[in-house]
Design a protein around this nucleic acid. Structure first.
Lengths: 156, 156
DNA sequence: CGTGAAACGTACTAGCC
DNA sequence: GGCTAGTACGTTTCACG
């Protein structure tokens, strides 16, 4: 993985509809070797998938809520079940196990506050949680799926 | 926007490389009207963009840090500058203005703890912040760019 | 909204320098 | 890695019901 691969990844992270010939032009390759590189990046799993990003406003997903969860100390089996339940909810778009004070953090996406309330009720109905605290985002100032590529080793 | 549009969006959120003919088959349309619908969804901005999602592990973006920021009360001009500076960092993949206790929340992506430390130093070098608190994610259990579509009105 | 078909572009393959 | 050329496939457009 060299400088050219990084350039290719940068472009595809921005817009995956770009033609291979255009990528080639921009990175200074001809199309064949450029195409081969993209294939390799896909085979290796560096490129995980290609998806359509929807406008949250337009699909009624206007409100983001961060949910901090503290669980009681439980068996690994219980924790597995817990994660399984959470993951099911389509409103949960991100789910992390945290270090420190809070055990888990969710990013939840819903149309409005009442919908969040309904979601919350469905959640605590399904699993017993010691402590939940919800914080609302007033504004999404930045959201990108682009990973910083500056940390990649110069050659791999 | 009806049931068929929702089906189309659901498929494209999962995998944007799927051929129009295949989408048509799955939603029970023929390709032409299906293609027209996709065009419309793009024109209307419901589909915002199509991107490649990279594997965070493979691009050395292993560590997610949530950064809670409390600012001093400042002028709107200062806040504009503040947001402008934050947005510049490629490590900041999400950036929210919050309600309640914390003023801003960042999701920051870096290879490891030392890299986070370096990022943090560069950050506070650029802007004065009253109070910063960083929490590390131990594990990303779920991350999806798929918005829940169940909240869309039956017909729009 | 459906069908079928034509026109075009792009991806993909192959062969060679 | 570069080139050229050919095939296959997908998108896009059109005519028509």
């Amino acid at each position: 993985m060299d400088r050219l691969d990084r350039k290719i990844l940068r472009l595809l992270q921005e817009d995956s509809t770009i033609a291979v010939a255009d990528i080639a032009k921009k990175v200074g390759l001809s199309t064949t070797p450029c195409w081969r590189r993209i294939q390799k990046l896909e085979e290796e799993g560096v490129i995980d998938r290609r998806v359509a990003i929807l406008n949250p406003e337009k699909v009624n997903a206007r409100v983001t809520v961060f949910v901090s969860i503290r669980t009681n100390s439980h068996s690994t089996e219980w924790l597995r079940r817990f994660a399984e339940v959470i993951v099911q909810f389509p409103e949960v778009v991100e789910f992390y196990r945290m270090s420190g004070d809070v055990d888990y953090l969710l990013r939840v996406v819903v149309p409005d506050i009442p919908a969040y309330d309904a979601f919350y009720k469905r959640l605590i109905e399904k699993i017993e949680i010691r402590d939940v605290s919800s914080t609302f985002a007033m504004e999404q100032i930045k959201f990108t799926t682009e990973m910083p590529l500056d940390y990649l080793p110069v050659d791999k």
